[in-house]
């Protein structure tokens, strides 16, 4: 089960940003949403991606799905390079990787019944399938995610947020994908429903062997579900390590700060806890700091950090970190 299914190499996604009110011919500035991210994903594995808002988590997911134009680098999926494939040649790969979204209700078309919504990927990729087979499969998948299959004719607004997310998961599952990218699938749900959805995802993974890329900004959720965790900051990878290793022995100062900020569900311990606060705000990705992008907020930064950009270095135990000093 250690076969690599996804290999992302030095992926860069830059967006053109024009100043408001600029002339049409002025050259746009580049917003470096993802700036040289590399990682590998094994079959059946869960990779958690954490980072604060605007660090490029969602953009990275969309770049892997080939939904945003890629500036440089490559995404190799099951041995095929996906970068630069046109929509027609990309289509066969779309059924192998599916996506779950942050806002459960907004990710379902309000004018379609959930039966139609869940059936859509199946009908897109297997247009020859008979209506009876599609229906049977839809009911099967809905049953798997814990939605009563006799509700297929209902509309999304008749379901709760957690149920909508289950429907979203059913839609992703129906084509038997090998990878599901979960873009903050539980951030919009309340805590008890979060647990249900996460457990559902973990059960499904156990059953089908699907790999997950799990994006979240809640570190405890990520720790619970992930085999390995990747920490992003300003479109750069700071640290990748197995989940337990990362939480027990964070090497990067940014990871330390993130972990120290996780609330502990015990008021006594919570009051004693030292939170490592970072100075300043997140720098603009339009104008990232030179050298190490984290140096402007890093408590241990040295003058040398501004010169050279650190590369991910293996510190043993599959623990990779991008820091000059650790």
């Amino acid at each position: 089960m250690t076969e690599t299914i996804l290999k992302v190499d030095d992926l860069k996604v830059w967006f053109d940003v024009k100043k408001p009110g600029a002339m049409p011919w002025t050259r746009p500035r580049k917003l470096k949403a993802v700036d040289g991210v590399s990682f590998e994903l094994n079959a059946g594995e869960t990779l958690g991606i954490v980072g604060e808002s605007g660090c490029g988590k969602s953009t990275l997911a969309r770049a892997v799905m080939q939904m945003v134009p890629i500036e440089a680098g490559s995404v190799v999926w099951l041995g095929d390079d996906l970068t630069g494939l046109d929509t027609r040649r990309m289509r066969p790969h779309r059924k192998e990787m599916q996506m779950i979204f942050q806002d459960p209700l907004a990710s379902l078309n309000p004018r379609m019944t959930i039966g139609q919504i869940v059936a859509e990927p199946l009908k897109t990729h297997f247009p020859g399938l008979s209506a009876a087979k599609v229906k049977a499969r839809v009911q099967d998948v809905l049953d798997t995610v814990g939605i009563l299959p006799n509700l297929v004719n209902r509309y999304p607004h008749e379901f709760s947020g957690g149920q909508c997310q289950r429907i979203g998961i059913a839609r992703a599952l129906i084509v038997d994908p090998q990878l599901i990218i979960c873009d903050e699938p539980v951030s919009a749900l309340d805590v008890s429903i979060q647990a249900q959805v996460i457990n559902l995802l973990m059960d499904l993974q156990k059953e089908t062997g699907v790999a997950l890329i799990f994006i979240a900004h809640d570190l405890s959720v990520v720790k619970h579900i992930s085999d390995r965790v990747m920490v992003l900051y300003l479109g750069n990878v700071m640290e990748i390590a197995p989940a337990a290793e990362l939480y027990d022995r964070p090497l990067h100062p940014y990871t330390e700060a993130l972990i120290s900020a996780v609330p502990i569900p015990d008021p006594v311990l919570e009051r004693q806890k030292q939170v490592m606060l970072l100075d300043l705000d997140l720098p603009s990705p339009l104008d990232p700091p030179s050298g190490c992008v984290f140096r402007t907020r890093c408590p241990i930064a040295e003058p040398g950090c501004a010169q050279v950009k650190p590369v991910l270095a293996d510190k043993g135990r599959e623990h990779l970190v991008a820091c000059h000093l650790r």
């Binding site: 309000p110 004018r111 019944t113 009911q139 049953d143 798997t144 995610v145 814990g146 009563l148 299959p149 006799n150 509700l151 297929v152 004719n153 209902r154 509309y155 607004h157 008749e158 008890s192 647990a195 249900q196 457990n199 559902l200 059960d203 499904l204 059953e207």
Partner: peptide, 28 residues
């Protein structure tokens, strides 16, 4: 939340069997 998949599944399936398909109320 833990028992979504396995213990309940036969029961939901049986329940679904007995219940007719529910008609939804579309936005229209």
């Amino acid at each position: 939340g833990m028992a979504i998949l396995n213990p309940q599944q036969p029961r939901t399936a049986a329940m679904a069997e007995r219940m007719a398909e529910v008609k939804g109320r579309s936005l229209w």
